[in-house]
């Protein structure tokens, strides 16, 4: 089985994000990490591929930088990576991103595409569905469990009330939630091997895509601040402060 995992490199969320002053695009340093959301996809892909002697190919769009994030996913065990890095793609919206990913995925060939439900930096939350539509396959979304067998895929699809069981024939796109599987940590051997694994770098033109920007962030301003509240140290009676406030706002 050929598994393709969408893996996004993002600025480390541990540091505050910054926007470029004119375009309001996210500043993307050379040093980017693998989006935590996609570690689950990589792990899921590895487990499904290993069960059936398949391969895992990573597909990514964005500035390659020093490729720390991609190496991280290769070190977990993915076989190869395709990264579409092109200055013309800066500021891409979700649809352009999906077009690029879908073309790259088609070029590689696939039985199953795995993505996260939403990225940590942009979280538009629609890229996997768009990719599925462009590829003409089903999007089995918000998976909390995934099994593959006999040319079909079955997931537990998270709902507001619990989950549904959803089934489709392969090929398909599956988006996985955090917690679908426990991602492995790369081993030393994995890290060494990752350095030798093939990474293809492509441009938009290589995929026959002409990027266009229709969406624009016009302005960004600070949100009105919430008035600072009262902070008290618990001296053993802090619960009484809470009771007092609950009385004041009339919920008790």
């Amino acid at each position: 089985m050929q598994v393709v995992v969408c893996a996004k490199q993002i600025p480390d969320p541990a540091n505050p994000y910054e926007l470029e002053p004119d375009t309001h695009w996210l500043v993307r340093p050379a040093e980017q990490i693998l989006d935590d959301t996609d570690r689950y996809g990589v792990e899921m892909g590895l487990q499904l591929a290993q069960a059936d002697e398949g391969t895992v190919t990573l597909v990514s769009m964005g500035p390659a930088g020093n490729m720390q994030g991609i190496r991280q996913a290769l070190a977990m065990g993915a076989d190869k990576a395709v990264i579409v890095d092109d200055p013309a793609l800066r500021g891409s919206d979700a649809l352009t991103t999906a077009r690029v990913l879908a073309k790259a995925i088609e070029r590689e060939g696939f039985d199953l595409v795995i993505a996260g439900t939403e990225s940590t930096d942009g979280y538009s939350g629609v890229v996997p569905q768009m990719v599925a539509e462009l590829l003409g396959v089903p999007a089995l979304t918000y998976a909390t469990a995934v099994t593959v067998g006999d040319g079909s895929v079955t997931i537990h699809r998270q709902t507001a009330a619990g989950y549904d069981i959803v089934e489709a024939a392969l090929p398909a796109v599956v988006s996985v939630t955090a917690g679908v599987v426990e991602p492995r940590y790369p081993t030393f051997k994995g890290i060494m091997e990752a350095k030798k694994k093939p990474v293809d770098t492509l441009t938009a033109a290589d995929l026959g895509i002409e990027p266009s920007l229709v969406q624009k962030v016009v302005s960004v301003e600070p949100a009105p601040e919430r008035q600072a509240g009262e902070i008290v140290e618990d001296d053993g009676d802090a619960h009484l402060k809470i009771v007092e406030l609950l009385e004041k706002v009339k919920v008790i």
Partner: peptide
């Protein structure tokens, strides 16, 4: 959930941009 799924597929089908 279903909103995102329908909107995403619809937008890709018609080439429309999505504001999320």
């Amino acid at each position: 959930y279903d909103d995102r799924d329908v909107a995403g597929r619809l937008a890709a089908r018609l080439g429309l941009s999505v504001l999320s």
